[in-house]
Design a protein around this nucleic acid. Sequence first.
DNA 1: CGTCGAATTGACCCCTGTCAACCAGGGTGG
DNA 2: CCACCCTGGTTGACAGGGGTCAATTCGACG
Lengths: 265, 265
Amino acid sequence: MLPLAKGTRAMQTQREAGLQLFLDRLTRRSVLSRREREAILALPAQPWVLSANSDFVRQGDRVEHTSLIVSGVIARSEQVSNGSRQITNFYVRGDMPDLHSVVQPTASSALEAVSGAAVLRVPHSALRAAAATYPGIAEAFWRDCVVDLMVHAQWVVNVGRRNAQSRIAHLLCEMACRYGARVVDGKVTYHLPVSQAHLAEATGLTAVHVNRSLSALRKSGLFFQGRTVRIEDWDELVRLAGFDPAYLQESSVEPVRIAALGQAA
Amino acid sequence: MLPLAKGTRAMQTQREAGLQLFLDRLTRRSVLSRREREAILALPAQPWVLSANSDFVRQGDRVEHTSLIVSGVIARSEQVSNGSRQITNFYVRGDMPDLHSVVQPTASSALEAVSGAAVLRVPHSALRAAAATYPGIAEAFWRDCVVDLMVHAQWVVNVGRRNAQSRIAHLLCEMACRYGARVVDGKVTYHLPVSQAHLAEATGLTAVHVNRSLSALRKSGLFFQGRTVRIEDWDELVRLAGFDPAYLQESSVEPVRIAALGQAA
DNA sequence: CGTCGAATTGACCCCTGTCAACCAGGGTGG
DNA sequence: CCACCCTGGTTGACAGGGGTCAATTCGACG
């Protein structure tokens, strides 16, 4: 967990690429004016490298920065009194796992880099200034948190009502969509740098049972080996998982915009 | 599910009381100026009565109103392909279960009145106008959705990692807090108009097992009979549930406000 | 080649689900 | 006033999905 050297050219391009990922994510669901888009890309952002399995936000911390993921996977997790942990959501490149802290700075869950990860730290002050100046940005942030909410709701359903195989299948379908993986000829492949133990923490199962379920799923054409997910028959897996991507809100049915467009400050 | 007659005095007082509940909820976590508070109380709101077990928002609906709960309990629920259902959250008086729809109108989960309920329907247009005029209101709405998110995260933990008794205990602790029930001499009592079957759908258990777990919990001083929750030993139940109310964000550690105060439009 | 984390496998059993019957209360209609 | 039903709560018997514990293998890396 260390900041990169400042002012290098590599750092500049990483910052630009990261902010562009974030902007892409926002504009996938929200309408932003040109000046608002520029304001997002102009956010200050400090590159930061997180080592695997490091908690970088702890439950109860009062944070002053958000973290924009450039690469790697970050998990929101919570400790339970009996010693076990539950992962509440995974976040991938372009996501800002703690965007909500802008408005509610006391972290109610921990954030952990499950793989090594590269993030950009963006100070709350800058995000707040952007939100205060451009109502459209505040709205986009709000909407982003709402999508996060809907994903969490689906996770409740997943751990609450599905059996082990379907849970894992559902999770891997969701991550495929969130990575923007493409279905080619009914097959999908993507990289998910997560251990089986993490999969277990995310699905409310034990690592042992995840292992067994994965080998059972292999018969249905789902492979998870070497941190790579390979799906031989996407439609079949979707059926098995009971997966309906609607909650990800990525199908753009004429996006809503509250804030007036045009004469932003 | 029917609107009340218009223009009666009873309707007026119900509207005022309901909006006041909503305002109370918002100001519990957000700072609002006098004009913003007035704007909330001036929202148009149509009283509506929901009969028990009626879905009034269906998955995939594109909604144009939000529902502010005046009395009763409303559940956010989702259907699973194998036929069972999972309740993702309960909402009580003062809550607006679908506030997020202001910014994301396609419902990704259904809303159901689990008891008979009285709500106020507030049109999106009015909420959007208020949010656009007063950035502080938009921010309060955003923050409200964030709290909803944190509650959902806790529910993932609950169904994912706790055993049956702890799950039920945790749920009943949470609802006690959200109802604002008071702990008197270590004891708490409140009314929760929910059947054991609903409890089961909310905890990822079956109705039969909820029944058995409830009778086991009786030995620990937790009683749920006739839709009334009676807790003989709050601290003991909190311990058993592993309950930490921090995620409800009700302890006001100097609330954050982004929008400038004072010269609102 | 040794080490450490992750994946894998086996044996065992307990928590929870399933199925089914039965009971209690309240509303409804005769 | 009682028969009827319907919903919700209660109980029993049984089974199965997933947890637990522990040992073994695999693979990356120094």
